[in-house]
Amino acid sequence: MKRLNQFTPNQKILGLAFLLVAAFAVSCLAGRFPLPGLQSPVQLFSSPLNQTILVHIRLPRVIISMLLGMALSVSGLVFQTILNNPMVEPGFLGVSQGAAFGAALAIVAFNGKSSQIQLLAFLFGIAGLGFSILLANRFHFGHWVMRLVLAGIAVSALFSSGLGILKYLADREEKLQSLSFWLLGGTSGVSWDSLIPIIAPILIAFTILLLLRWRLNLLSLDDETALSISVNLKIERLIFLFCAVLVTSLCISICGLISWIGLIVPHIARKIFGANTHFTVPASMLIGGILMLICDDLARVLFPAEIPLGVITAILGTILFLPIMTNKTIR
């Protein structure tokens, strides 16, 4: 991996961007129709059915997988940096569980449409973060970060037990099967209709994160020093957390809970680029997009039946986790 040193960070970013485009293109070629595996680009447009599959089946799914990977990874990076703790992911601070609970509530209690599910997922994602912060302020011991992580664990537990109750209630009406698939996560049901409303807010949040990316560094400093170099802690933390929660919960509302990517990708990005968020923000997005595209391709192409996406990311995450944690120098 020492060869990576020959390139400037900008060249490496460019390389990753190229890989993402390639992964996107390959994903458009990969599928079960007409035969499992890759199609030639010519074949893609060979019949009306082929075109329909490309435009209405594969494309929305490839796009949401990419956005999902980017969103989870960059919000993982934001959480890790702001909390100054490389071991957190969006699942901390109650965001994921809150969003999952909100979406499940929309399904079970209101028989919700996709727009309601997205709205409730976002609101409860924010609520999860809000509760965690409120609760952390109530704790009278320890450092801010530790209190926040503890509060996040408590709030997550609260929402997952709420989710458990919903599952129990849903079981009586036998909605459980689809609910549990949704909890395992997946992009199979995604159509343009469900994708279009979330694209704009996600892209806006991505843009904000990219524009402010260098300042994310400053939030990893101690409060005292951050303040002394003109950081407005309250507002800047809020902007970053808001964007991170927004993209995470919107994706969760469509794709369900997907674990590991949000934890592991920021580590890969830091191994390649060092800690500077000027590079790791775009790098996390690109790497997350690439990995999720690969995961989703496997989920839909490997077998006739869909493999739940959450299962694949968990396997991939575990496989990547150990070497990354033990290998200290890729950079």
Binding site: N217, S220, D222, T225, G274
Partner: peptide, 23 residues
């Protein structure tokens, strides 16, 4: 401002870290 110490969890280089002072 120079604190007594600062807890840093990420692998910044000295240059990256010092240049944050330019904020």
């Amino acid at each position: 401002f120079v604190p007594q110490s600062e807890k840093i969890s990420f692998d910044y280089t000295v240059l990256e870290y010092v240049s944050m002072g330019r904020a």
